[in-house]
Simulated assay, not measured.
Amino acid sequence: MHTEGESVATPATQTGAGEDPSRERFELELEFVQSLANPFYLHYLAQQDYFDDPCFVAYLEYLAYWRKPEYAKFVVYPHCLHYLGLLQHAEFRQSMRLLDTARALHGTQYKHWRFWREGA
């Protein structure tokens, strides 16, 4: 479990002097993973053929570690973890090319955020 002052166990990247490379990578990956909560961003990635790039698909597979509890606790937008799981499937990645898919996902998200407490 990550505690303050402790490095997060992720692969290091090259950074400037005085910066903690593992912390910077942790923050960059967290920011990217959370951006996956936006269906219109997923649509953009699909339209730009990112989901057809084997290296990018492998990166999405690598990022699946964010679904583990010790990392998921840092996520503010939990829909991103659901979409990250769906992005592991070629059919979902292909469906994100359609604007109607992005709109449908956005509508479902909106309804969830608006009404989820009413069911509790």
Rank of each mutant, 00 (worst) to 15 (best):
A72R: 06
E29N: 02
Q34T: 07
M1W: 09
Y65E: 05
R114H: 11
L87N: 01
K73R: 15
Y71R: 12
E27C: 07
A37H: 15
E29P: 02
E4T: 07
Y65R: 06
L30H: 02
A12N: 08
A72E: 09
L99D: 05
G16S: 12
H89L: 07
Y41D: 01
S7H: 12
F56V: 03
A9D: 15
W113Y: 14
E31P: 00
F56C: 02
A58G: 10
L81G: 04
A104L: 12
Y50N: 06
P78E: 12
C80I: 03
S95W: 00
Q14I: 13
L86V: 00
H82G: 12
P21A: 09
R97A: 03
A46G: 06
W66L: 07
A12M: 10
L84F: 06
E29H: 02
L30I: 02
A102W: 02
D49H: 13
L105W: 05
Y50G: 00
F26N: 04
V33K: 01
N38D: 15
Y65W: 10
R117L: 14
R97L: 11
F92T: 00
D20L: 05
Q109H: 11
Q47A: 13
L81I: 04
D20M: 06
P54Y: 04
Y59P: 01
F56P: 02
E19D: 11
E27K: 12
Y83N: 11
V33W: 04
F115A: 07
A37E: 14
H112L: 13
K73N: 05
R23W: 12
Y50E: 11
G85I: 03
F56G: 01
Y50S: 06
T108E: 15
R23E: 15
E6A: 10
A104W: 06
K68G: 04
Y62K: 14
A90S: 11
P11C: 07
R117P: 00
L86A: 08
E91A: 13
E61S: 13
P78S: 09
V75T: 08
F40G: 03
A9N: 13
F74W: 14
P39Q: 08
V33I: 08
R97F: 01
A120R: 11
L87V: 02
A17C: 07
Q109Y: 10
R103V: 10
M1L: 12
Y59K: 12
A104P: 00
R67N: 06
V75L: 11
K68W: 10
